[in-house]
Design a protein around this nucleic acid. Structure first.
Length: 289
DNA sequence: CTCCTGTCCTGCCGGC
DNA sequence: TGCCGGCAGGACAGGA
């Protein structure tokens, strides 16, 4: 379930515990998630020191002192729990991987649906790895701009909602934030992707950055109070404007003035899309004033 | 190439 | 109350 902001929050939450720490013990509790765990993972991780943690798209990359990368993707239902040194912990259903650090802190990966992935890639091969080689720009970086987005959407016949889910167009956006960004930009989710240009591309670029940045901020504030989140990373509450808000008022127009319409839910490529039919139009809006 | 559908897997929720 | 169908925030394979 986690999209870019959640993955960023998880990575940030792991950093104070894992950076410069040594992995003392690896408890791999099943052979695979979506893909098999790395061959000889235990031998390859135990004794290694973590030199860096960062995020690319929805992947957490943990750099080790032998120049290998341990890569974690949370899939739809992956969570990470941090158990402090000396604290009791009873292993739960779907705890698939537990890393114990030298200071006794445990990092628990739990994933009921097992759509997540844990794999290892050598440092010099990372950018050639199939999971990374085709990724689009990081939406929060300077390299993501309206001209770049327009270029990436050029000629695309699919609708803009599906295009935003394509990690080659822009990395890290998922179903929720695609809906939210389109809402904020006032763009109908069924607009042909290749037709988004100039003003609307600017609005959409800005909306993507804004929606993601605000979600990260919300996650960051959640992180500050560990008791509040019970040390569980990757799942914090947002208030969404349109996602999962079918029939409610969007708050930006009078779409639900008669209490019968409001936000609509449609299905695109098997995924739910939520949007406000009044605010999000298929053609570019003329400014009324 | 692009686009679309199906699939992996478990849990939860609403309707009957 | 219990059962059942539908749906869930992702990514990828395979076929058109």
């Amino acid at each position: 379930m986690p999209e870019l902001p959640e993955v960023e929050t998880v990575m940030k939450g792991l950093t104070p515990f894992m950076l410069d720490a040594t992995i003392a013990e690896v408890d791999q509790r099943r052979p695979n998630l979506r893909v098999p765990f790395p061959d000889k993972m235990r031998q390859r991780l135990e004794g290694r020191n973590v030199t860096q943690l960062y995020r690319r798209a929805k992947y957490i990359i943990i750099v080790l002192d032998d120049d290998q990368n341990l890569i974690i993707h949370l899939g739809m239902s992956g969570r990470i729990l941090i158990v402090r040194a000396g604290e009791d912990y009873e292993i739960k259903k779907h705890d698939h991987l537990i890393l114990t650090l030298q200071d006794g802190v445990r990092i628990v990966y739990n994933d009921p649906r097992r759509f997540g992935m844990v794999f290892m890639v050598a440092g010099d091969e990372l950018n050639n790895h199939p999971s990374f080689s085709a990724l689009g720009p990081e939406p929060l970086g300077n390299e993501f701009s309206a001209p770049i987005l327009t270029e990436r959407l050029k000629g695309k016949k699919s609708n803009i909602k599906q295009a935003l889910l394509d990690q080659r167009v822009v990395a890290g956006v998922g179903n929720i934030y695609a809906c939210e960004a389109l809402f904020q930009a006032g763009i109908h989710p069924e607009v042909e992707a290749g037709k988004i240009k100039s003003t609307r591309a600017e609005a959409l670029t800005h909306a993507i950055k804004d929606v993601l940045a605000r979600a990260i901020e919300a996650g960051g504030s959640t992180l500050k109070d560990y008791r509040h989140v019970n040390d569980e990373l990757g799942y914090f509450q947002h208030s969404f404007k349109v996602y999962d808000q079918e029939k409610k008022a969007c708050g930006a127009c009078d779409c639900d003035v008669d209490k019968t319409s409001g936000i609509k839910r449609i299905v695109q490529s098997g995924r739910s899309t939520f949007y406000c039919p009044q605010k999000q139009k298929k053609t570019e809006q003329k400014k009324t004033q």
